[in-house]
Design a protein around this nucleic acid. Structure first.
Lengths: 245, 245
DNA sequence: CGTCTATTTGAGCCCCGTCAAAGGCGGTGG
DNA sequence: CCACCGCCTTTGACGGGGCTCAAATAGACG
């Protein structure tokens, strides 16, 4: 199983070897989505559950006048559409940022694994609840922080999420977003994102070039961004359910 | 059982008489929270599930520099903290807008009802998924719409949500938010909210005074707001699970 | 080395924020 | 019933953060 996915599932609670094997067994079908193409589109009724194994994607919403928002990012280990059990159709699109490798799970098989492996069910529930908490923080970020702090916050969040699935290397990580992507995700214009990033660089808070992010002093960036990590719920809150094998 | 709550539960699927009775039976303890006081605060570890029976509340997040956001509104029938099964502590506060009547459910009792009444489980899952979808739309609203359309969108959403639980009267409904509340919810300043509301009134799109909202021509406001109702998932998507008694 | 995309820079302006003060309205107590 | 008080709404003047339009530069890729 991909390491990122495994780390992701175990952020909430440690799984047993059987839990992992059962989950791994349903990861049979995968699909490659080219960069900048939709994984699923608004209005679609997905027939299977998509799970990002490699690459980045974004949840996007579009206005009739053409304005587009990126309302969330998906990194390896993130589920695209666990909701298909309940909601009939997608109310937003999921679009690949980079070339993307996604697993396509059969709902029946996933249901079956969840019934026999309650720790996996809990891990998926945790996944969804954290996704909602992240969404609330994004709302707050757009509503309350000015451009400089807003971008700083977004960078810290993405760095910490990458780190939580083992995809950082010291103080750096891959960062495939263009400034245009950042603009659509932060509610700013590309021009202003550019100038704001320059200010962050000038202040020695981030280095960002060639699809690579470096954060020389994470603690300082966290303070500047007024970043409170509590909403990521990364502190292993399901420890009491840990498998002990 | 309160009518709003009943309508809320049945937005997804029709419940049987037994479903309703079982749920009603655990609605024993209620609490009155005065206006402008917290129902739960960030960092709390709630011991029971809170459910709004009467009045309005808001989910709030605070920055260290004092700026506050309202990142969501709760109206009758909304659950405050279904997530306590998984997440240990609140990453935001819930604050009463009006005097509030909330039911306090025992988690064990709720679990018990969910195990025996799958339609209720589904209705609660639906509730959470729609809450997440609403949160995404708020992010989009703040990121993509200018003040005029943004406020229009917020008003349409609240009106439709009130209507879905039977709390509108023709083209009007209670609307206890102050312009200061609207400012914190829309990422604007109270002064600008005031001027923008005046513009909406001047254009005949809304009447808003004395805690009462009137929308003379909903269709027109929907168009102005570029409002797409799909994210509210109000079209009875669980019809195939309906109880038929 | 040419083409395409992404980043950067500049100038001007507008939407919305800030600061300050005046009205309005409901509630409360005398 | 009226007077007062506190909260909410409204108005004005002014300033600034971020947007728009436009064009130049730098990288990425074949």
């Amino acid at each position: 199983m991909e390491l990122a996915l495994l780390k992701r599932l175990e952020l909430f609670t440690r799984l047993s070897a059987q839990d992992k094997a059962a989950f791994d067994a349903i990861l049979t079908r995968t699909r490659i989505v080219p960069a900048r193409r939709d994984v699923i589109s608004e209005g679609d009724r997905p027939t299977h559950v998509n799970l990002v194994l490699r690459g980045w994607a974004a949840r996007t919403k579009m206005l009739p006048d053409g304005r587009r928002s990126l309302v969330g990012f998906l990194i390896p280990g993130d589920f695209c559409d666990l909701n298909i059990y309940i909601l009939r159709q997608m109310d937003h699109s999921i679009s690949a940022i980079t070339a993307l490798k996604v697993a396509q799970l059969e709902p029946e098989q996933l249901t079956c694994v969840m019934e026999r492996h309650p720790r996996i069910t809990q891990a998926l529930l945790w996944h969804e609840l954290v996704a909602t908490a992240v969404q609330r923080e994004w709302t707050h970020n757009l509503g309350a922080r000015p451009a400089y702090e807003r971008l700083a916050h977004l960078l810290v969040e993405l760095f910490l999420r990458m780190r939580s699935v083992g995809l950082t290397y010291g103080d750096s990580c891959d960062f495939p977003l263009t400034q245009y992507d950042l603009a659509e995700a932060s509610g700013l214009t590309p021009v202003h994102v550019n100038r704001t990033l320059q200010a962050l660089r000038a202040d020695g808070l981030v280095e960002l070039e060639r699809k690579r992010l470096v954060i020389p002093d994470l603690q300082r960036l966290i303070e500047v961004a007024m970043f409170n990590p509590n909403y990521l719920h990364l502190d292993h809150e399901g420890a009491h359910l840990d498998a002990n094998d």
